[in-house]
Amino acid sequence: MVVKKRVFVGLLFVLMVILIVVFFQSGSKDEIKLTSSPSSLESEMRASGPREMRKVVLFFLSERDNLFHPEERLIEVDKSIVLMAKRTIEELMKGSQRGFISPFPPGIKLREVFLCKEGILYVDFSKDIQSRHLYGSNAEISTIFSTVNSLAYNFKPIKKVFILINGDEKETLGGHIDLTHPLVPHYDLIVN
């Protein structure tokens, strides 16, 4: 009986290890450099041990009234604002849960995030953000101000957001919104 039980426990352990390996493997495709583990909500739920979570408000564009609407998510708290900003962008990339417009075309990768002294947060996206973009003012405003508004709203030290593409400064995503300057949040576009 004891042997059987041990074998069973052993099997369970192996299964868990496999699951963990598979899980981490799938996360590593995202080329996340700063985070040591994926920070999706599901993983937080499954992970063992108490982790301090905080609420962040994401803004998604609604087609109905053409304004940004808030949606709440939980992210893991960290001393580093950069890390939390990164988690917030990852949440944005998963899209809206209430049927609003998802700001990013599928397959976009977040390359790097860094904060400089003046409160300008640099957010570097993979070049697909330009090649896969739809090219329209509406689509550009959705992508850019979902990002800028969500970051500046949740993290006080972030005053402006500078969007980079593949490590470089770009004029625009598709001929509309100016990316040559750091952007301030555009709260006028938020509902209420």
Binding site: E63, I101, P105, L134, G136, S137, A139, S142
Partner: peptide, 17 residues
């Protein structure tokens, strides 16, 4: 002069910026 584009096909209308 521009023509707009959205990820949502139902997005419609005119706006001036």
């Amino acid at each position: 002069i521009h023509a707009n584009g959205s990820y949502r096909r139902e997005a419609r209308g005119s706006e001036t910026f």
